[in-house]
């Protein structure tokens, strides 16, 4: 490839959206944008075409800190033997269960 042709590229941003009022934010995907305001607008134009979200967060992708696969053991295994942290651990009388 001829490197001389290389043109400007806007930085990459990660987009998080809130599907509904009160719901937690989820990762939607990414967009390229020159700055925060345009990143927000691009997120809206890309990821809300079908009313998927009512609110957005955008974060420069290089600011995301992620755990590595090597962390899998030390990070998550200790939680595997703590069933008491999960609601399914507790039995609930049937009558109560039905009420949602």
């Amino acid at each position: 490839m001829n490197k001389k042709n290389q043109k400007t590229e806007w930085p990459l941003w990660e987009v998080f959206y809130q599907p509904k009022d009160g719901k937690p934010f989820e990762h939607a995907g990414s967009v390229h944008a020159p700055d925060a305001e345009m990143a927000l607008q691009n997120a809206r134009d890309t990821y809300a075409r079908r009313n998927e979200g009512i609110a957005f967060w955008v974060v420069p992708s290089d600011q995301i800190v992620a755990s590595t696969p090597e962390d899998v053991g030390p990070f998550f295994d200790p939680a595997n033997d703590k069933p008491y942290r999960h609601p399914q651990f507790y039995s609930v009388p049937r009558a109560v269960k039905k009420r949602k």
Binding site: W10, V31, H32, A33, M38, Q41, N42, D45, T46, R49
Partner: peptide, 8 residues
């Protein structure tokens, strides 16, 4: 001029 702006 860029994919994102095409969408916009």
């Amino acid at each position: 001029p860029e994919l994102e702006e095409d969408l916009a």
